[in-house]
Design a protein around this nucleic acid. Structure first.
Length: 775
DNA sequence: GGGCGATGTCATGAA
DNA sequence: GATTCATGACATCGC
């Protein structure tokens, strides 16, 4: 593993040198700075906290980035960098590119450049490893490197030979092909554009400064995204993006419902009139119209054979939709709306005059406005004057013996579905020439909303007050605020506040964690862990003890004077002095210095201070004359550790202490990692809970929206039923009484006019069937 | 003086 | 079997 890491490191360096030799601009600093985590992960392993990674090679700490490989802050650093890269990558395509690797793979057999250094060149294995580790996050940076390639690849034939003369023409062609393939795969030209890259770097700087990452989004790609524009990767053209789900789902669903409803309209495209059932309400005759109009009308149902419109099929579709909806929304809502007892004010309110303009749902209305003026021209004189010779034969009129009109009607009973029970119960049995208006009043939208929300409250413990707030929310902008950043915690304001506060706290804690990570990183990078062989040399030259507390212990997470932690806010809470069970002999050296010592020079003061910061193990090591630092004891790989021990003639007590120090030190770091993991797990769970709450609120909003659209569709179907029923005439040309007859959808697709008693019986039978099935 | 959070340490099991 | 890591439990500290 160690050799492999060295292999990677050396290979990368030589690869960089190679690139510089052939004229490719390689910004090593930028690459190392922004890609440090992946590089470190390549070299050191995936992570420090969540995997049992062997972080024992002190020499792999990449001087200058001296964060301790076992530091629990390493993950914060990695996470912060990764998230930053993801944020930066939001405005550009992220297509993993492979041309660099392919290029290397191709070059290797040639033995041109890397082949000349077979021991350190990037082989297929190393390149693949690089590809695996870099991943999409690094695609941008890779692309930057590719940009260097692309600048030269076009004219590699002229440039390459002098520099890398062993590249054959086939190689160059292959490189060119691979590069073009990458462009075709979506590696947009912007990532090859130097000015664009400059912008990205500027953005990176801004982001690294932590200045309003989301608000100040200066990149063009983000603006294009904001405008729902897609930029063609090759042509650079911007075109409107068809964002799936860009419109709110409710509108989409309403359109879908409209489409279904349009399919039920008896005016197909074969007819001359564009079908749009959604405009029923506007074509429905007003109350003043029916008498005169109906006298001139004959039922379209009576003209089955002659009618150019497949009315039965349309009715079948219509009824299938109604049945489907009745099944899907077989909830208390429909029961409340349609089967409420006569005294129920809700049911009395649920009645719609034919001339009631239904503008409750703006999206539905607007989505169905087209061609509405002609939709119901079926009832225009031209259409209604169609021959109706076979009307009587098509109407299987069953002798009316209806006595009970109060029964509930099945779902296939249109009258039962459309006409409130109150109407049915109070309707006069005597035939009324005019179709009584079953929709005695205007449907109160607010009341309906309240019904739905009360239903929600009943079903899911949804507070009606909060639900009304929720309703207002999506009423305000036709659902555009469904996924707004506004906290959907209308479930409970207190809950929402706590949620938001917890969210903010978690985010703040996470941000503070990341900031602490970065600060820790910088701090430790400045004065922190020293692990180089130079240190070893220094220590060995320093004397037998070889202790270097000046820089190795100054910023450790413990054993610090709280007064010295002011520069490290995230360590303010870490100021414990766990020397409580220290051996008295070891403590002697750590005791408070005599007052005279305070008058010594600053050097002595610092030494005293650092002496006090020593852990008990360090004191013990010092007392036992251990010739190397505790850091080495703890962090050296076992091989080097044993080698180090073998260099010295140590007593049994010293060896025992060293092994104890190593064990305790490793366990201490393990405990820190473990606690950090626990904390992260809790925070993640907290975030998950918040996400779930948001999802729940969103689903509830969608449900309310669906119920509303369903309600409107039923209203339209109701109007259609009235229109059709109102135009039915018996042999004498008189309209049928809705209290005595009802339209029923038969199994064979036909629509029958049957007495209500029969319809009631059939409805009861159909109600029993599902119950029997359940049994 | 007790509660509480942070930290170190030990014991134990797993890899 | 040695080593390392993860984790529960406990002790101790400072606030």
């Amino acid at each position: 593993m160690l050799s492999l890491k060295k292999y990677f490191t050396e290979g990368l360096l030589q690869f960089t040198i190679l690139l510089s030799l052939i004229g490719v601009r390689v910004d090593v600093d930028t690459y190392l700075t922004s890609q440090l985590p992946p590089l470190r992960e390549i070299i050191l392993g995936p992570s420090s906290a969540y995997t049992q990674t062997q972080f024992h090679n002190l020499r792999n700490t990449l001087d200058g980035y001296g964060i301790h490989p076992k530091s629990i802050d390493l993950d914060n650093y990695f996470t912060a960098r990764r998230l930053l890269s993801q944020v930066r990558a939001l405005d550009r395509f992220q297509v993993p590119t492979t041309e660099v690797n392919a290029w290397l793979v191709h070059r290797d057999p040639e033995g041109s450049v890397s082949g000349s250094q077979p021991s350190s060149g990037l082989t297929l294995e190393s390149s693949s490893g690089l590809q695996d580790v870099t991943g999409p996050d690094n695609g941008v940076r890779e692309s930057e490197t590719e940009q260097g390639f692309s600048e030269d690849l076009e004219d590699l034939g002229a440039v390459a030979p002098p520099v890398s003369g062993d590249l054959t023409k086939e190689d160059i062609d292959l490189i060119d092909i691979l590069w073009r393939q990458d462009i075709d795969l979506g590696a947009g030209r912007e990532i090859f554009d130097y000015s664009h890259r400059q912008k990205e770097q500027d953005v990176d700087k801004e982001l690294q400064d932590g200045a309003e990452q989301e608000d100040t989004w200066p990149s063009e790609g983000a603006e294009a995204l904001a405008r729902n524009l897609l930029v063609d990767g090759e042509t650079g053209e911007s075109f409107p993006a068809q964002v799936p789900g860009g419109e709110d789902q409710t509108a989409l669903s309403l359109k879908e419902c409209l489409r279904l409803l349009e399919a039920t309209c008896p005016f197909g495209e074969n007819a001359e009139f564009p079908a749009d059932i959604s405009s029923i309400t506007e074509a429905v005759p007003s109350e003043s119209e029916p008498p005169g109009l109906q006298n001139n009308l004959l039922s379209p149902l009576l003209t089955e054979t002659e009618s150019p419109f497949d009315l039965e099929q349309q009715w079948q579709d219509l009824m299938s939709i109604m049945e489907m909806q009745a099944m899907e929304v077989n909830t208390s809502t429909s029961e409340i709306l349609y089967n409420a007892p006569p005294g129920d004010p809700l049911s009395t309110n649920y009645s719609l005059a034919p001339n009631t303009p239904i503008n409750q749902n703006v999206s539905l209305h607007q989505a169905s406005l087209g061609g509405c003026s002609q939709d119901f021209s079926l009832f225009s004189p031209e259409v209604e004057s169609l021959p109706v010779a076979s009307s009587s034969t098509l109407l299987p009129l069953v002798p009316s013996n209806s006595t009970s009109l109060n029964s509930t009607f099945g779902s296939t009973n249109l009258a039962g579905l459309f006409f409130p029970a109150q109407l049915n119960s109070t309707a006069n049995d005597t035939a009324v020439p005019e179709l009584p208006d079953p929709l005695g009043g205007l449907l109160d939208e607010a009341m309906l909303d309240e019904i739905s929300l009360m239903d929600l409250a009943i079903e899911e413990g949804f507070n009606p007050v909060q639900a009304s707030q929720l309703e207002e929310e999506f009423d305000s902008d036709s659902g555009l605020s469904l996924d707004s950043s506004h906290s959907p915690s209308s479930l409970s304001s207190s809950e929402g506040s706590s949620s938001s506060s917890s969210s903010s706290s978690s985010s703040s804690s996470s941000s503070s964690t990341s900031s602490s990570a970065s600060s820790s990183f910088s701090e430790e990078g400045a004065v922190g862990y020293s692990s180089d062989s130079e240190t070893l040399d220094l220590e060995e030259a320093e004397g037998a003890v070889g202790y270097q507390p000046e820089y190795s212990k100054f910023c450790r997470m413990s054993y610090q004077d709280p007064s010295q932690l002011s520069c490290l806010p995230y360590l303010e809470h870490v100021g414990h002095n766990h020397t409580y069970n220290m051996a008295p002999s070891a403590l002697d050296s750590a005791d408070l210095p005599p007052p005279s010592a305070l008058k010594k020079g600053s050097k002595d003061k610092q030494a005293d201070f650092l002496d006090k910061q020593m852990s008990r193990d360090e004191h013990r090591a010092r007392a036992m004359k251990i010739p190397f630092t505790n850091d080495k004891i703890i962090n050296l790989p076992v091989e080097e550790f044993n080698e180090l021990l073998s260099k010295y003639q140590l007593s049994e007590a010293q060896l025992s202490l060293i092994r104890d120090i190593r064990r305790r030190g490793k366990n201490k770091m393990a405990a820190q990692n473990c606690r950090k993991r626990k904390l992260d797990t809790i925070l993640n769970l907290e975030r998950d809970v918040e996400d779930l709450q948001r999802d729940k609120a969103r689903l509830l909003r969608e449900k309310v929206e669906f119920l509303r659209s369903l309600r409107q569709m039923k209203q339209k179907v109701q109007s259609l039923y009235q229109e059709v029923f109102g135009r039915l005439r018996d042999e004498n040309g008189r309209p049928y009484s809705p209290s005595q007859y009802a339209l029923q959808y038969a199994g064979d697709g036909s629509v029958l006019l049957i007495p209500r008693t029969l319809a009631d019986q059939q409805a009861r039978r159909q109600e029993r069937k599902p119950k029997d099935r359940r049994k």
